[in-house]
Design a protein around this nucleic acid. Sequence first.
DNA 1: CCCTAAAGTTAGCGTTGCTTACATATGTAA
DNA 2: TTACATATGTAAGCAACGCTAACTTTAGGG
Lengths: 209, 209
Amino acid sequence: MESNPKSYHHGDLREGLLEAIRSLIERDGPDKFRIAEACRIAGVSTAAPYKHFSDRDEMLRGVALRGMMRLRDAMRVAVEAYPPRDPRRVAGLGKAYVDFARSEPGIFRLMFGLAESHHSDDALRRVSDASEALVERVVAEHIGADPGSDDVRLRAYALWCFVHGHCFLTLDGKVDPHKPGVEDRLLALVGDRMLPAWEGADRNPSGAA
Amino acid sequence: MESNPKSYHHGDLREGLLEAIRSLIERDGPDKFRIAEACRIAGVSTAAPYKHFSDRDEMLRGVALRGMMRLRDAMRVAVEAYPPRDPRRVAGLGKAYVDFARSEPGIFRLMFGLAESHHSDDALRRVSDASEALVERVVAEHIGADPGSDDVRLRAYALWCFVHGHCFLTLDGKVDPHKPGVEDRLLALVGDRMLPAWEGADRNPSGAA
DNA sequence: CCCTAAAGTTAGCGTTGCTTACATATGTAA
DNA sequence: TTACATATGTAAGCAACGCTAACTTTAGGG
């Protein structure tokens, strides 16, 4: 079962293909990559992938899933770098998200470009939900509230919206990459205005519009 | 030059194809739509499109451009619904953005999924820049600052990040559509915490981290 | 030591984007 | 009107790609 290049059997063709496809998507985009080229990289014939994947979409979902896992892991590592209630914990979480989008823009686009797969594929949803739960946990600790409360979920979602939007806009070139100060000032704006404004405020669910 | 269905010439095949492709993208997605089907809808042969577009990508860019224009126009209409410095102006701007993403999710994804086209296609960038300028103008009026200042641009960008992220996350089903109260509370959170916190604060660019 | 199943290969089919060569309509000028 | 150039359509077909069918090779268990 090892990955011997000489043997008739690849050893772990599924993982080998996923890695090949990942690199090709990063180079050409999700709808441009060719299966035949991934086969050539993995060193197999063009029919081999169909022993492991039903079709092209399943390959894409496999690559997206592994990307979701890497993002989730990166967020976990970033969170554990600082103790609870440390402001750098929230900032680090956002930074990990942005760093991932910057380092793997093609996969990031793929992950959030699969329109219907999020609802149908259970594995994708599970990993995505884990990341969401992590954000909620960190926000809950930060503002000292119950992790499951609607208030925390809403604020975590708001933070996620902000970071997620920033990722897509930077990927689309809406912010100049040759102006490194912008991102720092942006983080400072959110960190100084948004997060402190939350602390101890609106703890009661007042129905004010 | 009229669009007579009986005549040999279509009349305005370019626009007819763009509309047909738009509807197909909305139904099947940007990478799934087939040119032949758009031709059937427009009532021409499969070779006809290539008299107006060089290739598939140019058709997609054409559809994306018209989408950008619709979004820009919707934002303009929303802005003009309220006088300057009215808080509903900023809220309406964001709402127009979200409404567009909800009503045309396929085109919205297409518009922000074209990775390199934003840099290469001048027409796309021009319309996108116009929308960006509009956001900056409204934010500048709202906080009573100079439209071209770095401060305004940063705050406008922060607002855009937030709204843009919310659009993508709702499209990906990250927020339950059967909970209409969520969006209102989200807008209230941003409106009550974020925007008022901006007014008259941090007008001086202090270097505090 | 076979026998089964897993995992690979080769050949080829159908679809699809796109091109080439040809046909038809439109606008302009003699 | 007629002649011509150009724009815009059709028909036929090529090449590439996803995918399948039938066959071959290896791994592993009784």
